[in-house]
Design a protein around this nucleic acid. Sequence first.
DNA 1: AAAGGATTCAACCGCCTTAGT
DNA 2: CACTAAGGCGGTTGAATCCTT
Length: 269
Amino acid sequence: MHISPCMDYKTMKYASSIGLALRKGAWTAEEDTLLKNCVEKYGEGKWHLVPLKAGLRRCRKSCRLRWLNYLRPNIKRGDFEEDEVDLILRLHKLLGNRWSLIAGRIPGRTANDVKNYWNTHLRSRPKQQKKEHQDAKSSEDHAMVTVIKPQPRAFSKTLSWFKGDNQILDTHDDRNLIRSSTKGVDTNYNMSAGVISSPIILDDCVNEFLELFDEGEKAVDGEIGWSFDGSQIEGDQALNVVEQEDNENSLFEFPTDDVIWNLLDTEQL
DNA sequence: AAAGGATTCAACCGCCTTAGT
DNA sequence: CACTAAGGCGGTTGAATCCTT
């Protein structure tokens, strides 16, 4: 039996006063049942009371974590699907290691799942991709078609993001970069071949961007792959399939970017 | 079949933020 | 304003499992 250092002082005092030490390590089926029954009876939250109410010799954090990562209903198990991986890659590019935010947009997946998946499958991917790219380049002498997905979409520079409080600070012709700034936070747009790619939104802008994202989801509810209670929408309506030039249903059937960019387009004046 | 290295993922740890006093 | 406790998060660990030799 281990003593958990994560226990609170009062909990520790109480536990020792009744001759108990808090458990740590793998959860047993019995503990799971106790925790599940407790949360179903009293609801989520008040985690400091859960060990007492459930009769568990676990600290509040351990209970919370076990519920969130394992016992909560609608948790999806098994391998990540292509659209989920795609979404993780995109959101990570946007948000960095903010796993709870990323997981919040992938129904049934927990922050721990996403983090573990990233660390085990995706973290070294850029290197691999670079290597694969170099290998392909060296083995392929002829010109090849490069499909860049998602396809960048042009939008008007009259877009309000570029007006009002935002200012186009400068345009780096050499780097194809446009920077704008709101509240002292830079937002970068990579320009290439006359179109503007996904914005690299930094820090405070992330929340605004996600709110915008949510509004977009509400606006097109039925096309997006899940509803806001976290449940998955089944059937054809769950996907807004974008046919690529090669007439294949691509990895990017998931319509995230379309939603965002359609939304952005609606801001054109 | 066995040993040992690699991988996976549940769980822990410590820090930060927030709310209450 | 300072302090305390709870909630929440990302980073890390280590046991279990898988894979290779």
